[in-house]
């Protein structure tokens, strides 16, 4: 089983982030939420490795919450 890659892996982080913001441009919050859900499913299918995806789910969940 391979490990989830948490090292820097994007060659152009700013360009990627700008593209990510651009696809949300003009959408309502509900539309953006739906787009994000589709995006996660597309990326999960591409990754394919269910053990790896489980690690990703836990990594996302395990971020220490900020004080409210």
């Amino acid at each position: 089983m391979s490990d989830l890659n948490l090292h820097r892996n994007l060659t152009d982080p700013d360009g990627f982030y700008a593209n990510l913001m651009a696809v949300h441009d003009g959408l309502s919050k509900a539309e953006s939420d739906a787009l994000n859900a589709r995006l996660i499913l597309i990326l999960a299918n591409h990754i394919g490795d269910e053990a790896l995806l489980a690690q990703a789910l836990h990594t996302a969940l395990d971020i220490a919450p900020r004080a409210e």
Partner: peptide, 27 residues
Amino acid sequence: KSEISRVFRDAVLDLASQHDFARPLVN
């Protein structure tokens, strides 16, 4: 400037506090 861009921005910052990979996204 939108709710979703703030959600992503804060997600990057939260991840960056624990994971090196997210730090290049912090601008």
